[in-house]
Amino acid sequence: MSESHTTAPLLTVEGLTAGYGGVAALDGVSLCVGVGEAVALLGANGAGKSTLLRAVLGLVPAGSGRLRFAGVDLGGLAPERRARLGLGYVPEGRRVFPGMSVRDNLEVASFAGRAGRAAELERVFALFPQLRIKAGEAAWRLSGGQQQMLAIGRALMGKPRLLLLDEPSLGLSPRLAAEVFATVAAVAAAGTAVLVAEQSAGRALAAASRAVVLRLGRIVHDGPAAETTPDALRHAFLGHPVRRP
């Protein structure tokens, strides 16, 4: 969370439209994420948060607009190519490989050779000590919170410059959700930018430096997390005038 979006942005989204089956989920969305910045992407269910993350990664085609990451135009690039550029993604619902061990879940996501993979594994285990203890166990035996940590750790094995997180607290107890968001803050503090889509605004704001609120596929608020008050959120969720880019 060291650099603001006023510096040269790592991710730039300009006028993005995207949707499913002819129904628009995003309508002219523009935002940026700076190097090492943690941004909370807030909004009600159906606001377009997941669609935005998936469009950045290339899992949902963009209807119009422009996406740039680390100076590279993402238009036409496959998700695998975007991942190799430094985009990491943790989907909603964790989606670990349940029959594989914790260690294998992590190692399969690395792009590095043996030595680099070992270094990345150690970095993830340092961030998530519980995964080190459970390294040889099958992923299905982990708790929900541990599986979420494994999903985040697996994304980090690719050494992303920007981590996209979709609803990381979904289905977790308040205690486990707090642990996950403490990790999100630690990831950002270590220099990896984070864009986290989340319905639980309080937890996300505590881990972020900036907040972006989506309503019906359009951005209605973009400002410092510390200044995103409950009143501001209520106005944004319930019909604050749309912020024009």
Rank of each mutant, 00 (worst) to 15 (best):
D166F: 14
P174R: 13
R141D: 00
S200W: 03
V96M: 05
S200V: 05
A135V: 06
A185D: 02
E167C: 10
S173M: 08
S173W: 12
A112W: 01
M149R: 05
F125G: 02
T192L: 01
V96R: 04
G86D: 02
L165I: 10
K159V: 01
V180Q: 02
R84H: 05
L74K: 13
N105M: 09
L150S: 02
A178S: 13
R123F: 02
V180G: 03
A83H: 00
A112Y: 04
E122Q: 05
L85T: 04
Q147K: 01
R154I: 10
R103K: 12
E92P: 04
V187Q: 02
G191L: 10
A112F: 10
R95Q: 15
Q130R: 14
F125I: 06
P168D: 09
Q199D: 09
Y89W: 12
N105S: 08
A197M: 06
A118G: 01
L170I: 12
E137M: 02
R103F: 13
L131R: 00
G145Y: 13
L164Y: 03
S110F: 03
V90D: 10
L172W: 07
E80H: 12
E198N: 10
G144R: 06
M149V: 00
R84P: 02
V96P: 04
R175F: 04
L150Q: 09
L176S: 01
T183N: 00
I133V: 15
G158R: 07
R103V: 15
A126G: 01
P168R: 01
R94E: 03
P174Y: 13
R175A: 15
L87I: 10
K134L: 09
A109E: 05
F128G: 01
R132A: 14
P160L: 08
L176Q: 15
A177G: 14
V194Y: 06
L164F: 09
S169D: 10
A118R: 15
E179F: 00
A182G: 15
G153D: 01
A138I: 11
L131P: 01
D104W: 02
A139R: 08
E107K: 11
S169C: 07
R154Y: 11
V96Y: 04
F111H: 13
G145H: 04
E137Y: 08
A78P: 15
R95P: 06
A189D: 14
E122M: 03
I133A: 15
V194P: 00
A151V: 08
V184L: 06
A189P: 12
E80W: 07
T183F: 05
F181D: 07
L176C: 02
E80D: 15
P168C: 08
A190R: 11
S169F: 14
A135H: 15
F181I: 00
Q146R: 08
L87K: 03
F111W: 13
L195W: 07
K159D: 07
P91M: 14
A151C: 10
L170Q: 12
P91Q: 12
L172S: 14
